[in-house]
């Protein structure tokens, strides 16, 4: 079965038998007053998979992100992380989730290590264990030599790496990244994208939100979101084939009826 086909949600809590989806979003709608930001959105992300949520600014990506992380409450539909419903069992759902927000959320006046210690404490992880974990995740993100530095002294790309390290600190099984490469130079973008893609091999499900079509690989799963609705989802090759065009850029243009999405230079 295609990972992005709407698979039936698992029972809550996570059942034995079929492994639950890392993330399942079922019939989710959300409105701000009369304005509908999301309209019956459904998709799922399997463990060990890299899924790109692709949409222009204003497509509803950030709203969906806020619903998954329970910054907003779901109005209709359900969102589950490894079978745990975010609305009903937020503790179990959120502890399996690592999040990198689009806006910087590090404390600029604290050092990298202090930021990581704070994050770990919010997950109930003690200082001794955190230091060991921090060493590992900072090594992974090539920031191990900057542990004592204040976040304020880091470049944009380095801050992003620290945010990814922080998101991995509590060993999540699902990683959400909301436009993590916005504002970064080409090399920093490529490095971060490469690093996050590698995480998939360790069993983590990744949902990568972007409006940059050059961040989509041919073998990725993609969800095309436009004006709050999913226009298509599945393997990139399948989406392109269904659209009857040559590549994902053309498929997106045809699906949304908009001009082509650019890469960011």
């Amino acid at each position: 079965m295609n990972v992005l086909q709407q698979d039936r949600p698992t029972e809550d809590p996570a059942p034995a038998g079929d492994a639950p989806a890392a993330l399942s979003v079922d019939d989710v709608s959300h409105s701000y007053g009369k304005r509908k930001a999301l309209d019956n959105v459904s998709f799922s992300v399997k463990p060990s998979s890299f899924t790109v949520l692709l949409g222009l600014n204003g497509a509803g990506k950030s709203t969906l992100f806020s619903l998954i992380t329970r910054l907003y409450s779901t109005q209709t539909g359900t969102i589950k992380i490894f079978g745990y419903e975010v609305g009903r069992d937020p503790g179990e759902a959120l502890r399996r989730l690592g999040v990198v927000f689009q806006a910087r959320t590090l404390d600029m006046d604290l050092s990298i290590q202090q930021n990581l210690l704070y994050h770990a404490a919010l997950h109930g992880i003690g200082a001794a264990e955190t230091k060991a974990r921090a060493a590992a995740v900072l090594e992974q993100t090539a920031m191990a030599d900057r542990t004592k530095d204040k976040v304020r002294d880091l470049s944009g790309g380095q801050m992003r790496r620290v945010e990814i390290a922080r998101a991995l600190l509590h060993h999540p099984q699902m990683l959400l990244l909301d436009e993590p490469t916005v504002g970064l130079d080409i090399k920093a973008r490529a490095d971060i994208l490469k690093h996050v893609r590698e995480l998939v091999h360790s069993g983590i499900g990744v949902l990568w939100t972007t409006h940059l079509i050059d961040e989509v690989n041919p073998d990725d799963d993609v969800v095309v979101l436009h004006q709050g609705k999913i226009l298509d989802k599945g393997r990139v090759s399948d989406v392109v084939a269904r659209a009857g065009v040559a590549d994902m850029r053309a498929a997106f243009t045809k699906l949304t009826g908009t001009g082509p999405l650019g890469g960011e230079s």
Binding site: G91, E92, L110, L117, A121, G124, L199, S202
Partner: peptide, 30 residues
């Protein structure tokens, strides 16, 4: 590389110690 498979399965809920660690972390940060 972080491996989720190397972690023991998560026990449901949080113990008193985890609440205490969280409280300490928030006070420490403030």
């Amino acid at each position: 590389m972080t491996s989720i498979t190397s972690d023991p399965p998560l026990r449901k809920g949080f113990g008193l110690l985890q609440y205490a660690i969280c409280l300490k972390g928030i006070v420490w940060r403030e």
